[in-house]
Design a protein around this nucleic acid. Sequence first.
DNA 1: GTCTATACATGGATAGAC
DNA 2: GTCTATCCATGTATAGAC
Lengths: 205, 205
Amino acid sequence: MPESEAAPPETTERKVRERLHAAAAEVFARKGYASATVNDIVRKAGVTKPVLYYHYGSKEGMYKAFLESALSDLEERVGAVETLRGSASLRLSRLCGEIYAIFRRHTDAVRVMHAIYYGPPQGAPYFDFDRALFRVEDSVSKIVRQGLEAGEFEGDAAAMTRAVLGVCNECIDIELAHPEKAVGKAGLLESLDVVLRGMKREGGR
Amino acid sequence: MPESEAAPPETTERKVRERLHAAAAEVFARKGYASATVNDIVRKAGVTKPVLYYHYGSKEGMYKAFLESALSDLEERVGAVETLRGSASLRLSRLCGEIYAIFRRHTDAVRVMHAIYYGPPQGAPYFDFDRALFRVEDSVSKIVRQGLEAGEFEGDAAAMTRAVLGVCNECIDIELAHPEKAVGKAGLLESLDVVLRGMKREGGR
DNA sequence: GTCTATACATGGATAGAC
DNA sequence: GTCTATCCATGTATAGAC
């Protein structure tokens, strides 16, 4: 990033950077890191190659800036939800709803992250997804344990945490693979309710 | 599976094909489709480039053969579990256990599939994952509906199906991202039990 | 800051001998 | 069936003018 010394009409530079950022998001999401080319990105952004290198240094720099902006937003919003009050069930609903909302805001980044995190590294540069994802896991885990202490829940904390995260991820996965079959926030909360209440009929067993 | 079986002195060809297959599995799983190179595969298999082209035609043919063998195994085993009898809960446990076992047998293929199916296509050739995955989903869904009809379960069938698949995928995802944190079949069944019984304490609310 | 033109490396695929 | 050597397209990155 060059040292700009009080240059007011920087609107052009800003817009170029943003256009590159948006174009990179689309291209990386459609092709993955390895298969995405700098040519693809600059073409979509309506600039030439050296412009990308001037602003982001390399394909790698472009990629990291793209992921960084999405994941920092995730951490911020999950942190905000942690301050809410109410029953553990209610707070889990809110948290899951927020996770889903973040996914909708950053679908491109989630798709790329998903592929790299669970799949082959694709030769992509290292990126610390764990920091943000552990944040989410800890947030769920904390609410579960509070529910246990309050006598609202019963069972194994780790198994319950996995079940809650499982329904969130399942609904996100469905939408990633088949957008037309998306279940939405409503479908997610419905599945969360299954986990909270159980599938078996009351008194059955 | 090659057509002719009555050729005894084919041991060399067989071994070469199998070595290539195994090498491709490792390389695709470590690098993904786009980033994996034919050179990587032949080097690991201990053969030269034209040998791969002779047996599999192209990088694409190598890739498809690799996935096909894993997914046909998946379909076959899921079909076998469908014949079992017992309560819906028990059959769901068996099915989830089998899904996990298949994942363990074909971790490489699952990793690659996961990335392509939920993530960017990576410029990989089209492969019909849906056929096999819908088979799994239908299998779970059918048991859930039978449980509902028998009065063993209560709730929304689609939401319950998502919850069950969610715990399976969650446990698989954990192992894909952090093998050292794997919860194993036991952990999976524990989480499935959470879904069956519910997190909330009996009588609470 | 942005352009044109190009250096340089790599990868998929094949020709042709054996 | 397998080898050596090579073709050719593509991709990242940069030099140098404006």
